[in-house]
């Protein structure tokens, strides 16, 4: 039977949220296509993760367990993944567009000689042609393109975190089929090894996975005014982002930069404070779910993509929002 696969990325024995988001979306594609939904889990001692994959709709879990899968190493992981694809022949393979997925997917597609579409924001299945319709923004989000792979299999796509909603199956967990796949990596050389991991900054810099982001731009006027952004971020439980102009001016670390030359993000909530909305910034944030813009210029391009626009002096508006959120919580 044909299958849709989701790469069940784990780090340090914990599943990445994007894998569960892809399973949630995968259920919809499975229903439309009649294909089975399977998760592929490469891990070391990862048996505890299978039930979670079933809970999000995987009907089958291929589990490859090996000490070499303790952390992502491109040579071993891509070799094991590609071997399994060749053996089982899935129709569709979905991979989260994380720093891991964006190494694995292009390597695998190159080996398999199949099509790969990056950063899809919409996935659909056409029952007539039996093709996966992969829609992604192009040219900085100015146009949308739907991509298909008619002749090669599997049809591979990556999707960024937070693009699809993570929804567990309703009702009691029912389990699924667990397939333990033997791992044979003999003869695959180890050409790279990880020596050290350094976590930087606080939680407020992991923009790719943040559910909410408050970003500051040149409209802040001075680096000190990032305190306004941080305060609003703090009450909203958000990470702190920044425009290229503020990073270039040295107001804040490049780790915070959102935009085409920074990070592309798609949180549930994006608040742009004093950001006018240059194309290169919009390209990095316009697929966010709900966008709020605060700017003194009512004609700023940022308002074209904002669900909610607040026009005026950010020095007054931001504290007013902080107060309103606190008041609501207190009520």
């Amino acid at each position: 039977m044909n299958e849709i696969w989701v790469f069940a990325e784990q780090r340090d024995g914990k599943l990445e949220s994007v894998a569960l988001e892809l399973l949630s979306k995968g259920r919809e594609l499975a229903a439309k296509s009649g294909y089975r939904l399977a998760a592929v889990l490469l891990s070391e001692n990862g048996e505890a993760l299978a039930p979670e994959l079933f809970a999000y709709g995987a009907q089958k879990v291929y589990r490859l367990d090996d000490p070499r899968f303790a952390y992502y190493q491109n040579d071993w992981w891509s070799e094991a993944f590609v071997s399994l694809v060749r053996e089982k022949g899935p129709e569709i393979v979905l991979v989260g567009a994380t720093t891991v997925g964006r190494s694995l997917a292009p390597t695998a597609a190159s080996i398999l000689h199949c099509g790969l579409t990056a950063d899809c924001t919409r996935l659909d299945f056409d029952p007539e042609t039996k093709l996966l319709l992969q829609t992604r923004p192009a040219f900085g989000g100015n146009i949308m393109a739907t991509i298909v792979c008619a002749d090669t299999r599997p049809q591979m796509a990556t999707v960024r975190p937070n693009v699809f909603k993570k929804e567990p199956l309703p009702g009691a967990p029912s389990g699924g089929e667990l397939v333990n796949v033997p791992v044979d990596l003999s003869g695959v050389p180890c050409r790279m090894k990880r020596l050290k991991v350094v976590k930087e900054g606080g939680d407020d810099v992991n923009l790719a996975e943040a559910k909410a982001i408050v970003s500051g731009g040149r409209g802040l006027g001075s680096p000190e005014k990032f305190s306004l952004v941080r305060e609003l971020a703090s009450v909203l439980g958000a990470a702190v982002g920044a425009s290229r102009a503020t990073v270039d001016a040295g107001w804040i670390s490049p780790l915070h930069q959102v935009g085409q030359t920074g990070k592309t993000v798609c949180p549930k909530l994006y608040v742009a404070v004093g950001i006018s909305g240059a194309i290169q910034h919009l390209a990095g944030m316009q697929s966010s779910d709900t966008i709020v813009a605060i700017n003194s210029d009512p004609n700023a391009p940022i308002f074209d993509v904002a669900d909610y626009g607040l026009v005026g002096d950010l020095n007054e508006i931001v504290p007013a929002i902080v107060a309103a959120v606190k008041a609501r919580r207190g009520a």
């Binding site: 099509g115 192009a138 100015n142 393109a145 739907t146 792979c149 316009q286 993509v305 904002a306």
Partner: peptide, 16 residues
Amino acid sequence: PTRVSKVFAPPVKSNR
């Protein structure tokens, strides 16, 4: 292997 099957303007948020 990939083909562009359709190109369209990004949906404009209607309830701005």
